[in-house]
Design a binder for these strands. Structure first.
Lengths: 134, 134
DNA sequence: TATTGTTATACTCTATAACTATA
DNA sequence: TATAGTTATAGAGTATAACAATA
């Protein structure tokens, strides 16, 4: 049972790659993830973003630098701590995120069109639960 | 609905990384995937393996070279086509696979110990279905 | 001419370690 | 001294394109 789940988890990479192909060249998956988290959870500092992405802070730092250079997020001084900055989506970042959402939704709708809505919701819920278990 | 599924799919990378950490240094995830497919579907040529892994054939070629160098698979001449070779697990490869399965199972059991068996099966089934939809 | 693989190159993601600046 | 970030370096996965060998 566990072995089969492990197999499916590794094989799911193909699906993720398909979704990644819908992204514009300027916005690699790592950038999209940063924008999505900031949109969902609001402004935050780098360490908090690192926790939510579950990657090393050095990786987060590079992703953030990438999206900041393109004007999709702003880094403002943290009034309470001179070592960190507050990260926040800009209007341009929000607009891009809308576009990305439309693309991935279209891709999923195209390939999952024959799924029952309840099954999609169920899968989403189970994935969220799996993630929180780790 | 689709957007939320897309988000969970990208976030699931953290879980995959956790599982990957259980692998021995000599056997990166790509190698493990090759061995798993050969174990599940039996001997085959590179092009077939490429289909099953859903990656580019150039990538498959490198993964296969890696596991072949370590003696985990054998590449025998294809009697029907001089351009390709038949890939098959060796006893050493099979033994390694057993070890890998034990490790990933232990890791999943540790973190998913409080899940109902039906939920694990359900998640596995839905992931398989998602993959086949793509 | 078409197909099967291989190899060179490049890009993205990730982690570790060393380092700077501030608390 | 401890913490927040940054940067350099290295390892792994993947795709594209050019190429060799065989069908």
């Amino acid at each position: 049972m566990y072995a089969e789940l492990a197999r499916q988890l590794t094989a799911i990479g193909a699906v993720k790659r398909e979704l990644a192909r819908t992204l514009p060249p300027e916005c690699p998956p790592g950038s999209a993830a940063v924008l999505a988290v900031l949109d969902r959870h609001g402004e935050m500092r780098l360490s908090r973003l690192t926790e939510l992405l579950a990657i090393d802070i050095s990786v987060t730092s590079r992703h953030v630098a990438h999206v900041a250079e393109r004007g999709w997020i702003a880094r403002e001084a943290d009034p309470g701590d001179g070592r960190s900055r507050i990260l926040r989506l800009t209007p341009a970042g929000r607009a891009l995120l809308l576009e990305l959402g439309a693309r991935s939704t279209a891709a999923l709708k195209r390939t999952l069109g024959d799924w029952a809505a309840e099954d999609i919701t169920l899968l989403t819920t189970l994935l969220a639960r799996l993630r929180s278990s780790f």
